[in-house]
Amino acid sequence: MSSRIHECIVRIGETIKDNKDFLTDLDREIGDADHGVNMARGFTAVEDKLPADETDIGAMLKKTGMTLLSTVGGASGPLYGTAYMEAGKIAAGKTEITAADFGAMLEAAIAGIQKRGKAVKGEKTMLDALIPAHDAFMEKANAGADLVTALDAACAAANEGVEFTKTIRATKGRASYLGERSIGHQDPGATSATLTLETIRDFLKE
């Protein structure tokens, strides 16, 4: 039994690396100008460490999370690390993912990020993309949509969430030190989270 999980994670890493400068520039506006650099460093390490022959999606996500945790260097390390590890717990032993599985994985990832970052929706963080994405995903999935169709809805909602982060003031993370000056800029973490979802969707469409 093989799975495409290795290829999928490598693809996410490619997207992150392709957007390294974009994410770093967003973070320069309202943070410490390292989000793209940090995430690219993390995914370079992930590519080096991931066993290409591992087919257990849960095991692969756990390994990805552990690697991000120790190589990213900013808050995104523990936050994305926790997200991948929590999603991995749901996918343990699986070599295929259904829409119901993915919904549960996204929910677990969000819960992990919330616990770790002690943030809620509306604080100009990655949650402002992920929570609406999960809501939109579940609405479609519960109506019987397949994984890719539900992911399409999730990506649209995540992009709206990124737009929403432009309108609000940051109350978590480095950007919170800027107060009102954080308004008008989109959140780098919400952006990288959306890029991740879009990459998964595009990969599954192939």
């Binding site: 940090n38 120790s70 190589t71 260097g73 900013g74 390390g77």
Partner: peptide, 13 residues
Amino acid sequence: GLEDGTIGTDSVR
């Protein structure tokens, strides 16, 4: 910092 001296934090360290 990170293992290579870069500014950052590392849970494992």
